[in-house]
Amino acid sequence: MIVLMQNQELPKLDELYKEIILEHYREPCGKVPLEHVDYEAEGMNPLCGDEVKLSLQLKDKTIEKIHIEGHGCSISVASGSMLASILKGKSINEAKQLSLFLKDMMHGKVDKNEKDIGDLEALEGVKKFPVRIKCALLPWTTFEEALAGHEHVEIS
């Protein structure tokens, strides 16, 4: 028998739109143009049209600067802004690990407290709004694609 997910508890909007998320949405980081672009990728969510273009400037396997542009909802813009600020100064390996951790967190595989992830903690609330998980992960998937040297990524 099919069990419908009816009459579930109403997920609280404040869990999705945490103050820190709205702050990042209001004034996103990662807007300063780079001196040189080492890797770059464009990502889009074909279902809703959210688009992001992400460029990386590296120095000795460390991420020196990130530039991010595009258009999207508050969740996708905030997530991209957090990415730009948190990955600055991180090594490529650290960055990859953080990206993996965030994905696992969104899919409920790890708890946010297992790692010090700063502002990214705020994205945990998106879990309760499954259709929005893609919005939160779009910048991160695009980041991974940039590292992989791919030019384009579409999440489905």
Partner: peptide
């Protein structure tokens, strides 16, 4: 606009 400011977001 990626820089769109939603004003003082209400929490």
């Amino acid at each position: 606009s990626p820089n769109a400011k939603p004003g003082a977001a209400k929490i």
